[in-house]
């Protein structure tokens, strides 16, 4: 165990796509391809521990269409983060370019979902349909990297913001360490676990 109580899982989309479809390129196109890639990701996650941080790497993927994004991103999140239930699966979409963002945002909006994406420049952002409070609290934690339970009242004096922080944890957008109760930005957790 790594001390964070969560297993890191690196998912190389290029390799998964090429395993599914004999192609010179790594295109995330068509719904059947997306479904096959999602099942492969789920199979990888089945071997992880009770809690897992999955970093899904888009950086070597050229084209992502809407049908495939719906399967690989939206349906994956819906499966592991069912609305109204606390999740034990955390996801970061890594290496996301502006061209990937359009289909990813479209499918997240369609399902009213939010996810953490790291751009090609290495900056993390919320994509999909975050509320204003989600964006404010998430950004605040992202800038600090971590927040201990004792620091929360001073850092988030507004009760609404504190409730939002808990909501972000339930939806897998912020990680709370099981033992210490510290809140970690997923970018911080990802770098600590995977570099």
């Amino acid at each position: 165990m790594n001390g964070f109580g969560i297993d890191p899982v690196a998912i190389d989309l290029r390799r998964l796509v090429q395993r599914q479809v004999a192609s010179l390129y790594a295109h995330l196109v068509t719904r059947p391809t997306g479904r096959a890639v999602r099942l492969a990701i789920e199979s990888q996650l089945a071997n992880a521990g009770e809690m897992a941080l999955s970093v899904i790497d888009f950086s070597e993927v050229h084209v992502v269409d809407f049908s495939c994004a719906d399967e690989v991103v939206a349906k994956l999140l819906l499966h592991y983060q069912p609305p109204g239930q606390a999740t034990r699966a955390f996801f970061v979409l890594r290496g996301v370019s502006d061209l990937h963002l359009e289909p990813i945002e479209a499918v997240l909006e369609r399902h009213r979902l939010t996810a953490v994406a790291e751009t090609a420049a290495g900056l993390c952002r919320l994509v999909g349909v975050p509320s204003e409070a989600d964006a404010r609290v998430w950004r605040s934690l992202e800038e600090r990297g971590a927040l201990s339970p004792g620091d929360v009242p001073a850092h988030l004096p507004d009760e609404v913001d504190r409730a939002t922080l808990e909501s972000l944890v339930r939806r897998g957008l912020v990680f709370r360490r099981p033992e210490s109760g510290d809140y970690l930005a997923l970018s911080n957790l990802m770098r600590s676990l995977m570099g």
């Binding site: 295109h27 196109v29 068509t30 719904r31 050229h62 084209v63 992502v64 269409d65 809407f66 049908s67 502006d98 061209l99 359009e102 289909p103």
Partner: peptide, 18 residues
């Protein structure tokens, strides 16, 4: 950058057939 957007359009119209 249009090349990628164009590929997405083609992919989606072709999938409509299938």
């Amino acid at each position: 950058v249009t090349v990628v957007q164009f590929s997405v359009v083609l992919s989606e119209v072709c999938q409509n057939i299938i």
